[in-house]
Design a protein around this nucleic acid. Sequence first.
DNA 1: GTCTATACACCGATAGAC
DNA 2: GTCTATCGGTGTATAGAC
Lengths: 207, 207
Amino acid sequence: MTLKIPFRQQQFDAREEAILDAVNRLLSDKGYDLMTMEDVALEVGVAKGSLYKHFSSKEKLAAAVLSRLLRQTLAALEAMPAEWPAIRRLEEILRWSLQHRLRGGVPHLPSTSRALQRSLMLNLEYIALALRVNKRFHALVREARRAGDISAAVSDDVVVYTLYSRACDPTVEFLVRDGKLDAGQIVETMVAATFGGLRAAVNEGPR
Amino acid sequence: MTLKIPFRQQQFDAREEAILDAVNRLLSDKGYDLMTMEDVALEVGVAKGSLYKHFSSKEKLAAAVLSRLLRQTLAALEAMPAEWPAIRRLEEILRWSLQHRLRGGVPHLPSTSRALQRSLMLNLEYIALALRVNKRFHALVREARRAGDISAAVSDDVVVYTLYSRACDPTVEFLVRDGKLDAGQIVETMVAATFGGLRAAVNEGPR
DNA sequence: GTCTATACACCGATAGAC
DNA sequence: GTCTATCGGTGTATAGAC
């Protein structure tokens, strides 16, 4: 038996999703500071004032999009086969983030705007989600290290931060602009550079 | 014999340097979009209008600071002993950039603001300098690869882009905020993570 | 709830006196 | 050249009709 949902409510929810999708596009395209509420209104096809019936401020709007991203990230983590070794799951979550970005999604780190960064620190829903994601990452890194798969030269913190950073790395945009690599190759080269490093392994040697 | 420089000129030049220093601080602290001309004026201790006698626009001001950074980068490259292998010089330039940032300098990549990015692409002096730096980097990467020191899994482009990105990586700020590592340790862990990667080398193995 | 119109604040740049 | 004062434009948020 399905719960009956009023038509008006469905329509309202659908529009709210459309708004979030539009903000997602604009945010990843222009960034928070350059995105205006009028941009959003035009993209969705509603009046500027109407947006405020759904979200009480520009900050709330961005926080909603980033919270959705974090929920999607948690879902992607859950969806991974439990039998995979932790190091593989770490690589996979970087792949997932990069693919997400290449499909036009917002990067995880709102490092593009200090203004947004500050306001997010006051958003309880966002903070709670970010902490959950962070906890999962740290657990995975600990597990991978126990298995001997993480370099002794970097601490757990550095591993986690590096994964966040590289997921949002502008290198991706440069490579897209160059056009020499397709999306799949970009993801793989980023994963290789992040986990394997730039330096040749000792057994590669000079040719 | 030294050329005589009028006192007024010296005073003017000194103030101009003071302005650039102030912008450097503000830019690395608040970012381009959030930095206002009034902030700059207050920081330097002059009236807002007076800034425009030195720099005709906010964009020119930021471009001047970033151009100065690029010249400093080139100087740092020149200063490195020629007998060092290329891979060592690449590591060293990443160290230099990170140390520069930890001392409060602007990051190389203006990726924090799309607005600034766009305006820089119209600034001939900046573009010329950026191209020179880029050329030097690519030459170094090619040399390092010939010596067998660069991983076969990443192309030259990816190496160069990754160096730029990691020089501006928000991981640095996270680590500073954590306070667990001092500046020197932060630099070394970043260099280790970038060149050595996150994954344990095969000879490390599980413990 | 959605629209149009507008209040209010901020910021980049300029004008004009000294 | 430096100051004060101000213009013009933009952007968030709100008011009020429908």
